[in-house]
Structures are given as structure tokens and as C-alpha cells.
Amino acid sequence: MSEQDDNALLTRRALLEGSAASALLLTTGMPLRSEAAAADEVSFAVHTNVVTLRINAHDSTLNLDSRTTLLDVLRHQLGLTGVKKGCDHGQCGACTVLVNGRRINACLTLAVMHENDEITTIEGLASGERLHPLQSAFIAHDGFQCGYCTPGQICSAAGMLEEARRGWPSHATHNLCAANIPLTDEEIRERMSGNLCRCAAYPNIVKAIAAAAHEARQ
């Protein structure tokens, strides 16, 4: 990690004696430059990096605070607010995006790690005015209510269908060696359980994904 723009000064005392939030700080990857100063005057820096992110087939070159998650860059800097923050801890799946075709939680990855990656968000799924089959199926089967988890559900479903197509088994797979894993409701439920929906649209989410998968096979 490069160390430029050493313009941040926080004290070790602040870090160590700060309230519960300091524990959060220490886990957010903030670099501690302990070599820099005396016992209670340790400074640490805000690092920035110039990174080009390829998102929905568009390149954006950004000077990024290296602490910034991919999720927060998408939402705060690029205006892609279809990507949702539900927990910021990888526990709800609302921030699911596709990175090189695979689904990940955008809150659990730092943006600076994604130079040269192909990132797809919900905003990049449709072809112009024509919705992605999953998007149409979610509307037709009422696979949501409040809609907040929906972009993550749909991106996750897109990634999941690809995983299933490649024959990756899940906890619900009966025959791990099967060449083709039938995408049963049980498989869909299991594979979509990283995406929480408090409105509990689950039965309709399963129907929507099954319908879109069926359509894709036709």
C-alpha cells in the first residue's frame, strides 16, 4: 500500500483510549505509522491512491481514500445508489455486485483492490430500456416489497445462476458429482440465503429466479 498524502494526524491515545468505536477503527484497515513519532504522539496517515475502476463498462479514474469500500465508492462517489448498504458487514447481501462475473459483497472489499476488474451493478444489468430477465421476473412474480434488498437479490441471482450452470454444488446438492445440478427450489433457497429480505418476499424471489432460469434455458 503506498503512503502518500500524509496529512492525517491522530494520536495513539485517541486510538487506544477512545470509546468502543476505536475497536471498529482498528478493524477498518487504517494504517498505523508507529515508526513516526513518540509514545503518545503517533501519527497515521490517510492514504489515497489513483485507481481506475471499470464499472458497468465505463472507466472511472478516481483518487481514492484507501479506506473506502467498493460499496461506498459506488454509492458516495459514483452515484450508483442502486447498490444498497444494509449492514456494512457482509451479513445481509444488499450490496451484492458482480466482480468479473462473480457475486461479492461490495461492503467487504476495498475499492483500491479492484483496478482492472469488471464490476457490474444493478444499474448495468439492463440493456438500455430492456430489462434483464431477472429484473422482469422479479416484477412479474412480485419478488420484493420495499425494494431495498432487491438490487442485491437480483445481482446475487445472476451470479448464482452462473455458479449453478458451472456445476458448483451447494449445501442442498444431493449428488456432488453430478454433471448437471438441477436448480430446484431447495437449491435456489440455499444459494440465495446470503441475501436477507425483511419483507420476506422469499417464496416470490424463488419463483422469479426459477422462471428467469427456465427462460434462459429455452
Binding site: 491522530l10 494520536t11 485517541a14 486510538l15 477512545g18 470509546s19 471498529l24 477503527l25 477498518t28 487504517m30
Partner: peptide, 10 residues
């Protein structure tokens, strides 16, 4: 990021 980091130093 700036706000969150600073909150931890209070």
C-alpha cells in the same frame, strides 16, 4: 471515512 475515523478518536 473521515467522519468515521474521527469518531473513533473521541
Amino acid at each position: 471515512e473521515a467522519a468515521r475515523a474521527a469518531a473513533g478518536s473521541i
